[in-house]
Design a protein around this nucleic acid. Structure first.
Lengths: 406, 406
DNA sequence: CTGTTAGCGCCTTCAA
DNA sequence: TTGAAGGCGCTAACAG
C-alpha cells in the first residue's frame, strides 16, 4: 500500500535500520549515505508511519491540551501559547499577513516538493475541547493515554465533585505511570487533600459507592502523584478587585458568579467575600447569582440582580465576557456605566480594554502561563521547587468603575 | 511494563482475539464471556495501546482540525462545533455549571473506577493551531498523515501563494490517497484552477523552481483531488454590507482589509469593490488599509484611514474584532458612532451584538459550518453533489451604521 | 462463538 | 559506520 521504510531503504541501497537512523537523527550516519537516504525519502514522498514507530519506540509525539471551552479566548490564548512554546521551529504568528518568508533558515528547508520536513522531536500539540463536561474530560484523558501521549496539559478550572476528582486523579496517575508528563495550567493543584475536602463538603449527598470509589483512587494516587502545577491567584485577584470597589465607596455590590461546582468559581467568589468581610460589609445571598462564563449569562444575571436589589451601585462578574453581557443589560435598562453602576470583570481578555467604557478587571498572565506549561510539558524547564507555582493576578483599573457618588 | 491485551486475555481465560473483539464491539461474543473480559479489563485498568491497534488495523481514531488562530473565537466556534458533532456521546456543553449528571444513560457507564469507558468508534478530535503560518500548516498536515489520521478538517482562509497552494494540494492528495477524509470548512475550494490562477497572477515574482514545483503538484493532483468543500459567501456578504452603507448615503467609505495574500481578505475586498463599482463610486487606493484580523490592527488602520482622509463617513473592517478596534480609535478621536462615522464588521461573533453601539456586520453560520464539517469528516453525511457548498452570509444591520446626514 | 496464526512498520540491540 | 534479526501490542483472516 503506502511507501514504507523498506521501500526507502531499497531505493537508497541501504538497510532499513540506516534509514531509521537518519530520519531520527539520533545516531551517526555517513554524510553521503545520509544524502542518498534523504533523496530517496523525497523521491518516494515517504512519510513515517506514526503508529508503527510509536509502537516500536513505546512513545509518541502527541501532546494533548485539555480546555473547557475552545470558543472562549481565555483558553485559546493559553492553548496558543502552549503550542508555540512547543514547536521547535520558532514559528511566529504571522499576524500582519506578510507573504510567507521563503528565506532559508537555519533548519534545512524542504527540498523540492514532497511532504514537509518535520524536525526530529517535533511534537503534535493538539487541543481537546471538553466543553466543561467531566465525562468528556475523562474520555480525552483515556484517549490520550491510549495514544501514549508524551504530555498532557490540563487548563482552567476543575469540576468540584469528589467522584470526578478521584477519577481524574486516577487517570493522571495512570498517565504519569505510563511516562506521560502531566501539567496543570491555571488549574488548582490535585491531591488527596483537595479531593478529601470536597468529599467532606458533599458527604451528605454522596452515595456510599462514590465514597468508596474515591477512597480507592485517593489511596492509589496517594502522595505519588503531584503533577507540576501552575495556578492563578484567583482568590487574591478577586479580593483586590472587590477592595478596589469598596475603596471607591461601594457598599452594595452585586456578584455574578460562574457556574457552581467549579474551582474557579469558588475561588473568585471566596476572594470577593473575603474582601467584603474584611470591611464588615454584609453580603446577603441575594446579591450573588450564578451563571455560565458567557455573555448571555452575564446579561441575565445583571437583570436578575437589579430585580432583586435596584439600589446596587456596582456589579462584579466572574469573567470579562459575562461582565460585558452585564454592561449590555444595564445599558438597556437605561443605566450609565460607571455613572449609575460600576462594572468589573476578570481575566483581562483583549477585548476588555476596548469595550466602551474600558473594563476594570483583573489581569491573568494567560500567555505566560501557557508558555511555561508548554516548556514544562516538553521537559525543557524543570519544575519549580514544591512543584506548584501561583501566578499573579493584577488589578487593572479602567473606566468602568468609579465612585458611586459621582 | 504496561498491561497488554494478553494480560487481560489470560485473566479472563480467553484468547487475545476475543478480548479484541469485545473491546471493538464489531463481532458477536457470548454475553458471559464478554462480561468476564470486561471485568478483567476493569480489574487490570487496561487501556488499549493506540499505536499498536492503529498499526494493525491501518487506521487511527485521530481527526485533525487545522485553524489559523486558536485565540480567535471565529475558529473556536467552528472547532467546537466540529468536535461536538464528532463525539458519539452527545456530550452537551455544560454551561450552567450544574453538577455532572450521574444518571445512567443508554450507553453503559463506567463500572467502578478505572479508565473511562471509551465508546467504540470514538474519535479523538484535536485542533492544531497553524498561527497562519504556511510552514506550520504543512507540518501539521504531514504530522497528521504520519498518524494516519481518520480525517482532516481545514478551516478558514488560505494563504495565496502558488508554491504553498501546490504544496497543500499535494499534501491533501497524499492524505486522501492514504484514506484520510479531507474537508475544507470556510475555506475556498482547492484545485488546479485555483492554483493556476494564482500562479498566473504572481508569475512575475515567482522563481522557476517554484513554477516547476507547482506544475508537478498540480499535475499529480489533477482532477483526482476535490475534497468536500464548505465555503462561506465572503464576496456576497461583503458586497451586501457595502451596499447597505451605500444605500444609507455613504460615498466615502474606508476599508480595513485583512492580511494581504489570504483568500478571505481578497474575497471580502472584492465584494466591497464590486458594490462600489456597481454604484459608480470611485475607490481610490488610499481608502483601503491592510492589517491583521485583530483588534490592534483595526485600531491602527482606522487612525491611518482618518489621517489619509478626514472626510470619511464610514469604515468597514474585514472582521468584527478589527471593527471594534476601529471603534475604539474613532472614539478616542472624539468621533461618535454612528453619528460621525458608521462602522461595520464581518463574522458576527457573539460579542458584536453587545458592543456599544451594537455592531452592524455580516453573519456567517460558523456553528452550522463546523457541524456539517464534523459530520462530513465522520462520513456520516454524504458530500453534496458537486462536492462544494457555499454557505450564506447574511447582513445584520444594527446600531453602528446610520445615514451620514443624521 | 472462540482460538490460532500471521503479519502491520518500525526501532533497537547485537554483530560485523 | 552499517546490516541482520527480533519483537513492540494488536487485528484479521482462517479454522474449528
Amino acid at each position: 500500500m503506502a511507501v514504507t521504510l523498506a521501500d526507502v531503504a531499497a531505493r537508497a541501497r541501504v538497510s532499513a535500520a540506516t534509514v531509521s537512523r537518519v530520519l531520527n537523527g539520533n545516531y551517526p550516519v555517513a554524510e553521503n549515505t545520509r544524502a542518498r537516504v534523504l533523496r530517496a525519502v523525497a523521491d518516494l514522498e515517504y512519510v513515517v508511519n506514526g503508529p508503527a514507530s510509536a509502537l516500536a519506540a513505546a512513545t509518541s509525539d502527541l501532546v494533548g491540551i485539555l480546555v473547557n471551552d475552545i470558543a472562549d479566548p481565555f483558553f485559546g490564548i493559553i492553548a496558543s501559547a502552549v503550542q508555540s512554546e512547543m514547536s521547535t521551529a520558532t514559528g511566529q504568528h504571522i499576524g500582519n499577513g506578510a507573504h510567507p518568508r521563503t528565506g532559508d533558515s537555519d533548519t534545512r528547508r524542504n527540498p523540492g516538493s514532497g511532504p514537509a520536513l518535520v524536525p526530529a522531536g517535533e511534537k503534535l500539540a493538539v487541543v481537546c475541547n471538553t466543553g466543561g463536561s467531566p465525562e468528556r474530560e475523562l474520555m480525552y484523558l483515556t484517549l490520550l493515554q491510549r495514544q501514549r501521549a508524551a504530555a498532557v496539559v490540563l487548563t482552567g478550572g476543575a469540576v468540584e465533585d469528589a467522584g470526578h476528582a478521584a477519577a481524574v486523579t486516577a487517570a493522571l496517575t495512570r498517565l504519569a505511570a505510563a511516562g506521560t508528563r502531566v501539567v496543570l495550567c491555571g488549574r488548582p493543584p490535585l491531591g488527596p487533600e483537595a479531593g478529601a475536602r470536597e468529599a467532606r463538603a458533599t458527604a451528605g449527598t454522596r452515595t456510599d459507592l462514590e465514597a468508596r470509589i474515591f477512597q480507592r483512587a485517593a489511596h492509589k494516587a496517594g502522595a505519588a502523584l503531584s503533577p507540576v502545577t501552575l495556578a492563578f491567584d484567583n482568590r487574591g485577584g478577586a479580593r483586590r478587585l472587590t477592595e478596589h470597589l469598596i475603596s471607591l465607596g461601594h457598599q452594595c455590590i452585586g456578584y455574578i458568579a460562574g457556574p457552581v461546582g467549579r474551582t474557579t468559581t469558588r475561588h473568585r467568589l471566596e476572594g470577593h467575600r473575603a474582601a467584603l468581610a474584611a470591611h464588615d460589609i454584609p453580603d446577603p445571598a441575594h446579591r450573588t447569582v450564578h451563571g455560565a462564563y458567557d455573555r448571555a449569562a452575564g446579561y441575565d444575571a445583571a437583570l436578575e440582580l437589579l430585580r432583586r436589589d435596584p439600589t446596587l451601585t456596582a456589579v462584579i462578574a466572574a469573567n470579562d465576557t459575562a461582565a460585558l453581557g452585564a454592561c449590555a443589560a444595564l445599558r438597556e435598562r437605561g443605566l450609565r456605566i460607571p455613572g449609575d453602576v460600576s462594572v468589573a470583570g476578570f481575566d483581562d481578555l483583549p477585548f476588555s480594554a476596548d469595550a466602551a467604557p474600558a473594563l476594570t478587571t483583573v489581569r491573568l498572565p494567560l500567555q505566560e502561563a501557557g508558555a511555561r506549561a508548554g516548556r514544562l510539558a516538553m521537559g525543557r524547564e524543570t519544575p519549580p521547587p514544591g512543584e506548584i507555582t501561583t501566578l499573579r493576578a493584577d488589578l487593572m483599573v479602567r473606566e468602568s468603575t468609579s465612585s458611586p457618588y459621582s
